[in-house]
Structure formats: structure tokens, C-alpha cells
Simulated assay, not measured.
Amino acid sequence: MISMKKHLILSQLTLCAGLAFAGFSVQAQDVKGSAQAGQGKVWLCIGCHAIPDYRADYPLVYKVPMIGGQNAAYIASSLAAYKKGERKHPTMRSIAGSLSDQDMADLGEYYAAQTASSPNNPLK
């Protein structure tokens, strides 16, 4: 009898957790980024990502990628992974931790829109 109650409670908790995660992922997918809005937020990124061949040296020497032209969804999901701690770089984690889902989507769209012929952002 007790094991049946535990099984029922565990099933209900699993269902609730699944619904909560489903709601979270639907909410995150509903965020539409704007390259124009991202242009005003890019100051968070340019200190490292706008410098050709830049290498960060904390905590290890790390070649910082140029992210112009990268896929918007990839940038937004990478930032979300840093914010959650799934990616391990202290500087990126602290920067991503300050961003909302909208900020991440906007930055993703901004960088996705960049090409070799894009004019320089005046904030760079």
C-alpha cells in the first residue's frame, strides 16, 4: 500500500515537472529577437568578441571567437547555457546571467545579421 502511494506521488511529480519544463521551453521559443534592439545591447559583447584574434586569459587562455554572422538561435542558446551554468566560462556566465531571454534573442539576431560588409556599430 505504501509503495503504491509513493508510485502515485512520484508519477504526479514527474507529470508536474514535465509540464513545467514544457511551459518554460514554449515561453523561451515565443521570444522574437530584434537586430535593431540588439545593436543597443552589443556593448556587453564587444569588449572581447570585436577584437580579431583576441585571447582571454582567465581562467585559461581561450581564443575568443568572432561571432558576427553566427546563427541567431545558436547565440541565444549559448548565452542561455552560460546563464544556467551548462557552459563553464566565468566571464561569460556573469554576463549571460545579467541578460533576459529577450536580450539573448536580440543579441542573437544582431550578430546573425552581420556580414563582412556590415557597417561598424558605433558602440564598437
Rank of each mutant, 00 (worst) to 15 (best):
A50W: 09
D101S: 06
R55Y: 08
D103V: 09
M104G: 03
G97E: 05
I51T: 04
G18W: 14
S117W: 15
A35W: 12
P65D: 13
K6A: 11
H7D: 04
I2E: 13
G33R: 02
S117V: 15
E86Q: 13
V64R: 00
D103S: 02
V31Q: 08
G18L: 15
H89M: 00
P119M: 04
G108T: 05
G47M: 07
G85W: 02
Y110C: 09
M92D: 11
G33L: 01
N121T: 04
A112M: 10
L79Q: 04
Y58L: 13
T14D: 06
P122M: 03
A37H: 03
W43L: 12
I2G: 05
A81P: 04
K32D: 01
G47Y: 02
C48D: 05
V42W: 07
A105Y: 10
T91H: 08
A37G: 01
K5Q: 14
L123C: 04
A113N: 14
A96T: 08
L79C: 06
I51E: 08
F24Y: 15
L19I: 10
S34H: 05
E109S: 08
M4A: 14
L79W: 03
K84A: 08
P119G: 02
D57Q: 02
A116I: 08
N71I: 11
I95T: 02
K83Q: 10
M104C: 06
Q70V: 14
M104N: 01
S77H: 10
Y62Q: 06
Y110L: 09
Q36A: 12
A113K: 12
Q102G: 07
Y58C: 04
V42G: 05
A35M: 09
Y54V: 01
A35K: 15
A112H: 07
A113I: 11
G23A: 05
Q102F: 03
W43S: 09
L19F: 12
G97Q: 06
K41E: 04
Y62S: 07
A17H: 03
V26D: 09
C45E: 00
S78E: 14
L13E: 02
K88D: 07
S3W: 12
L79I: 07
L99D: 05
D53V: 00
G18P: 01
M4G: 14
N71W: 13
P59L: 03
Q36S: 11
H7T: 13
N121M: 04
S34Y: 08
E109L: 09
Y111T: 00
D106C: 10
C48G: 03
I2S: 13
P52H: 06
A56G: 08
I51M: 07
A17W: 02
Q70Y: 08
D57A: 06
C16M: 12
S94Y: 12
L8G: 01
F24G: 03
N120C: 12
A22I: 15
S117Y: 15
S94D: 11
R87I: 01
G69R: 12
Q29D: 14
P119F: 06
P119H: 07
T115H: 12
L15C: 05
A80P: 05
S78R: 11
M66Y: 01
C16G: 07
V31I: 14
P65Y: 15
A105D: 12
Y74G: 06
F21I: 15
P65N: 14
D57K: 00
I95F: 03
A116D: 13
S3E: 14
Q70H: 13
A56R: 01
F24E: 10
A81E: 02
E86Y: 08
K63R: 10
Q70W: 11
D53Q: 13
G97I: 10
L44V: 00
S118L: 10
S118A: 11
K84E: 07
S100L: 12
